[in-house]
Amino acid sequence: MKMNIKIWRQAFQTTRGNFQTYILENMDDNMSFLEMLDVLNEKILHEGGDPVSFSHDCREGICGSCGVVINGRVHGPLQGVTTCQIYMRHLKHYKTLVIEPWRARAFPIIKDLVTDRQAFDRILQAGGYISINTGGIPDANATPIGRHIADQAFAAASCIGCGACVAACPNASANLFVSAKISHLAFLPQGQPEKNHRVESMLKAMDKEGFGNCSNTAACEFECPKGITLKNIAKLNREYFEALFRSSLEEHPTHPHHGKGDEVAHAAFHDTHEK
């Protein structure tokens, strides 16, 4: 297999980038896409150049490090896989591969194909967890959780934080990513006490990072390598409106619907978010 490899090269975040074309020959069907980049990099290095930087680590689709756009498709032309799970046999009908980094305001390019996705971490830091300390926990089987619920929570929790949803979205929205974490925790009984605060706080953090708004193009769902569905965004919206509704109730404590359950939830919220 012989191919033209056209890659985005950019030395720094602040410098201008451009495409450079390389030619690779003798590629094997069973070579992974990233192994193709390895081979290219060894070649560049031997010729005295600077190899192409790209993110990768586990190379088995679970760490979420890798991610480039190949011929216009986020994580390449296959559905349901990460960049590291693309093999040259999947690409052999192309004469040229055009390889670009994620493009989104909230993910600045560090170098070549490497983008800075730390914005995702900051969103999760704002509330993507259950507030418990280590130790003093009741037995794991004390609260049964229906298999169906557990499976749904698991499906949402399998997001790998790769950022493909943002890269695929015409608005560079992070809604799918955020909704995956919100759903994961909102499905579980353990996630209930903080659910209102969580969604508000995470969405606020998301806005601050400069991600765009969701306009329901569903490109994210289509390109997500882990099958995170739009249902999660629907759930996110429900959770958000419910939270808004609750907090409007909390401003009017005499409201007739403000029952005992809310006080418990409210107390839990304050417990876990001590200033």
């Binding site: 130790g135 926990i137 794991a140 089987n141 229906g146 557990a150 929570a153 996630g191």
Partner: peptide, 18 residues
């Protein structure tokens, strides 16, 4: 116990137990 409390979605049987 710790992990379940953190929301780790372990596999469960139909009765809802681990």
């Amino acid at each position: 116990d710790q992990c379940v409390a953190q929301g780790v979605p372990f596999a469960r049987d139909y009765g809802g137990h681990l």
